[in-house]
């Protein structure tokens, strides 16, 4: 039980916001930055923040992720470990403008 609580505490601490998490910001239905470099071979947490007044959905087929980002909110997307390469993503609700690519190096 104690070990469990300890593990829980650690995992909760680990999941609280972290300054060095890579971040994407949605503004005017575009991602900033549109090209985001991340380290290959490690797990990381991508924070996606939506500064638009309407919802967006972060989606990537290559990364196998889709997640709604409500207006004014920031949500975590857990990724990796990724092989070196490029992983395109898009905003499902504004596919003509919201496009980007994650580059794992």
């Amino acid at each position: 039980m104690r070990a469990f609580l300890l593990a829980l505490t650690i995992s909760l601490l680990a999941s609280s916001a972290n300054a060095d998490d890579p971040q994407l910001i949605i503004k005017d239905h575009k991602f900033q930055p549109e090209r985001l470099e991340v380290p290959a071979g490690v797990k990381f947490r991508l924070m996606v923040r939506n500064n638009d007044p309407t919802a967006e959905e972060f989606e990537s087929f290559q990364l196998n992720r889709e997640k709604v980002v409500p207006p004014g909110k920031e949500i975590p997307v857990f990724l990796g470990p990724l092989d070196r390469g490029e992983y395109p993503f898009f905003g499902d609700f504004h596919q003509d403008t919201a496009k980007g690519v994650i580059v794992a190096k």
Partner: peptide, 15 residues
């Protein structure tokens, strides 16, 4: 309730 769900459980409420 999308924003409530999104922020629940340390941000993995949606999943």
């Amino acid at each position: 309730f999308a924003d409530v769900i999104a922020e629940a459980a340390e941000g993995v409420g949606q999943e």
